[in-house]
Nucleic acid binder design. Structure first.
Length: 476
DNA sequence: TGAAATGTTGGGGCG
DNA sequence: ACGCCCCAACATTTC
């Protein structure tokens, strides 16, 4: 008997365009039942964090609306994926399930099991590549091993045959029986205490806004990206990260929008860092938990709940760090230059394990992405594959002066310092008493004294590293 | 996709 | 004119 209906299982590909699972259903002339299943427990330790759930809620709303305009209903379900798919397939008389791949270790395992079970039940199951330029197993060194260094990975990526064009949105046939779904609200993705106001103000999730953001970026900031990306006081970045994480836009779309622009390559290199992050996560699935470099197992991290909390709340006493942490808390996002500064501060100045920082980012970032988050923190921590050398320690004052020279960013997020002159904005503790008084700042009352002295903290971090250096050549 | 410490160079002041 | 010193600017090395 010919198949009539397919489920398209939406996961982190919340878009219509460049969606191979949708295209396949249309190509086969099948009616489509789009379904989203909320099953956070299947993601192991990495179920979406609080900020990401807010985004997901809004993105699902947007997708549901878009599908509705096409005459389709996005079914919302909750519960174990396999059973839910089987039940939904039965409800709708679907004999095929198509989806686009995820690459987190727990999801790879789950999807493998789902595929096997569906096929055992005579339901066709097919998965597609939609979230990466290349599958993590498609890129290998000459020796056939995974890359551990970014630059050769990047060269290899550029040497590959041209990346295929993004797929057009197909014409979809609605299914006769759409099945019964929940309201998105029933997933309880929104917080009970409304701390998400700032996120809603800063962002509009959804495919159309993602395309707009790309358009805006490619018609201006991309041309100055090389330097503009380092300025948190200006809008020199694409701000595409959360859209990209939820698949509201695909890297193929971004690639083709920017590749013809000579300057676009500087930004596409960042997209390649994302590819590299997925490559590493796929080949080294333990890295969200453990350092890549084995000698770091013996690293003398400190346990300091008080300073960790101060960091989280944006109360370290270092303005650029605090500005970043407050931007994160308020908007669910932090400028990448500031992410590096704030992360370096936690890991090097406070000697707190990078996993603590990764966990906080996981919960507070709307773009929280296991591959990127893991790579980023291991990079800063100096314990990753192609990481910054451990002794590369950011100075929060000089970084602030260099990349936020007028203190615009600091004043935006740390308004209690707004009255200080540019000269002191990144190191208020050095300002003369009368300057502080005139600015209406009393350190320890309006804004904290530095929780640690960077100079001393730097020396302490280097000494801590000395302790594990001897283990450098030990094998895993 | 750092920063500090250390080394080198070259111009200017000055005896 | 010369050597000497100082020091800023830049370069290299070290962490």
């Amino acid at each position: 008997m010919d198949k009539k209906t397919a489920l398209v299982w939406y996961r982190r590909d919340l878009r219509m365009a460049d969606n191979p699972a949708l295209v396949e259903a249309a190509r086969l002339g099948l009616a489509v039942v789009p379904v989203f299943i909320w099953a956070p427990e299947e993601e192991g330790d990495w179920a979406p964090g609080g900020a990401a759930r807010v985004w997901l809620h809004e993105s699902l709303k947007s997708l549901q609306m878009t599908l509705k305009e096409r005459g389709l209903t996005l079914l919302i379900k909750k519960g174990p994926s396999l059973e839910t798919l089987l039940r939904t397939a039965k409800e709708c008389g679907a004999e095929a399930v198509f989806w686009n791949r995820c690459y987190e270790p727990a999801l790879i395992e789950r999807d493998k099991a789902v595929k096997a079970e569906l096929q055992a039940k005579k339901i066709e199951a097919k998965s597609f590549s939609a979230s990466l330029l290349f599958e993590p197993w498609e890129i290998k060194t000459q020796q056939g091993t995974p890359y551990k260094v970014f630059t050769p990975f990047w060269n290899q990526l550029l040497a590959k045959p041209e990346i295929s064009k993004p797929l057009e949105e197909p014409k979809l046939k609605p299914a006769a029986s759409a099945g019964n779904g929940l309201k998105i609200e029933a997933l309880e993705l929104l917080p009970s205490i409304p701390w998400d106001k700032g996120i809603r103000k800063a962002w509009t999730p959804g495919e159309s806004r993602a395309l707009q953001a790309l358009e805006k970026f490619s018609s201006g900031p991309v041309n100055a990206y090389e330097t503009g990306r380092d300025r948190p006081d200006e809008t020199g970045t694409s701000r595409l990260s959360p859209h990209l994480h939820f698949g509201e836009i695909s890297p193929r779309q971004i690639w083709h929008a920017l590749r013809k622009n000579k300057k676009g390559l500087v930004y596409l290199r960042q997209i390649a860092w994302r590819e590299f992050a997925y490559h590493l996560l796929y080949h080294f699935p333990h890295t969200p938990r453990d350092c890549m470099r084995p000698e770091f197992r013996a690293f003398p991290w400190e346990r300091n709940a008080r300073l960790l909390k101060a960091w989280q709340k944006g109360g370290t006493g270092y303005p650029i760090v605090d500005a970043g942490m407050r931007e994160l808390w308020a908007t669910g996002w932090m400028h990448n230059r500031v992410r590096m500064i704030a992360a370096s501060f936690l890991v090097k100045d406070l000697l707190v394990r990078w996993q603590e920082g990764a966990a906080w980012f996981w919960d507070t970032l709307v773009d929280a992405d296991l591959a990127n988050n893991t790579l980023g923190w291991q990079w800063v921590g100096g314990c990753g594959a192609d990481a910054a050398p451990y002794f590369r320690i950011f100075n929060p004052v000089s970084q602030g002066k260099k990349f936020d020279p007028q203190g615009v960013y600091v004043r935006r997020w740390v308004p209690e310092l707004a009255g200080l002159d540019d000269k002191w904005i990144h190191e208020p503790w050095k300002a003369p008493a009368e300057v502080l008084e005139k600015a209406g700042v009393k350190l320890g009352r309006d804004y904290p004294e530095p929780g640690v002295d960077h100079e001393a903290a730097r020396r302490r971090a280097l000494m801590a590293y000395e302790k594990i250096k001897s283990g450098k050549n030990q094998t895993r």
